[in-house]
Design a protein around this nucleic acid. Structure first.
Lengths: 145, 145
DNA sequence: TATTGTTATACTCTATAACTATA
DNA sequence: TATAGTTATAGAGTATAACAATA
């Protein structure tokens, strides 16, 4: 292998590594941003994610899939959201084993403000034009397949 | 505000949210990929990150900055890497308070194979062309400022 | 006085296993 | 027999505080 080709290969590897580092860096910052927003709403990240995932109502089991955590964790999250009157537990009519988490009117108001706050402060929204956002979305979609 | 403008605004918000979700999704998969590679090398993620950060030798304090963790954590990481003969502790000649972590020949071989394995399996490398990688890198750089 | 690395300890997050009530 | 949710408990990861050695 010639020296020139070797160099090109090294450049490629470095670019891949640099992009990976930046991906982690960007999402880490967005994660911290999310955490700060959660703090200002007096919610843990898990509680906020649950609220955002709750369009209307959903089985608790369903939520553990969305949150990518064990079902046992959802119990505590639901307890604390219920204590804040942001969600309430309902027994499913069709399967009495299933408990649905339903968002309350207060929870719906919080959810909406939370979503707005997150999107408004998102670097994706602040730093990129609409066209750049589309390009980024397409590239990420490729990575996601 | 007209109905049409309202709709456009909603579309933008949805796009921002979708891109954010995909960013988290992509990095989460890369993180899992990294974890699997670490497992196959019988290293924890923290040990692997330390090894990758160690070009030659570095003060332990320096490493806690790079790893973005408390200095007290580096002690344990160094203990286990030293037990595997991948690094060794050296006292700095210029400041006897400072302990340097120096990579061993065995550590250097492992580090190289680890880096190759990670880059080769990276979605950035596998799923994107060189041109797309450059575009992605530029967009991430914008997000990172 | 301040800093490096160490130790002991505590806290958070998450998973596992056993349990109940339903199916 | 299998599944939804609960409970108790254990593990990993990380941070805080006190300490010895050195600057």
């Amino acid at each position: 292998m010639s020296k020139r080709l070797q160099t090109e290969s090294d450049d490629t590897i470095e670019q891949v590594d640099e992009i990976a580092q930046r991906l982690f860096g960007v999402t880490e910052r967005m994660r911290k941003n999310f955490q700060e927003t959660c703090d200002s709403f007096d919610l843990t990240a898990a509680q906020a994610r649950t609220l955002l995932a709750l369009n209307d109502r959903a089985p608790m089991r369903n939520l553990s899939d969305v949150l990518q955590c064990d079902a046992s964790n959802v119990t505590g999250i639901a307890d604390r959201l219920e204590a804040k009157d942001l969600v309430r537990r309902e027994t499913s009519a069709s399967d009495r084993r299933v408990t649905l988490l339903a968002i309350t009117p207060k929870g719906e108001r919080v959810r909406r403000r939370l979503q707005e706050s997150i999107n408004a402060s998102s670097p994706v929204n602040v730093k990129l034009s609409a066209a750049e956002q589309t390009t980024l979305g397409d590239l990420l979609a490729k990575l996601d397949t």
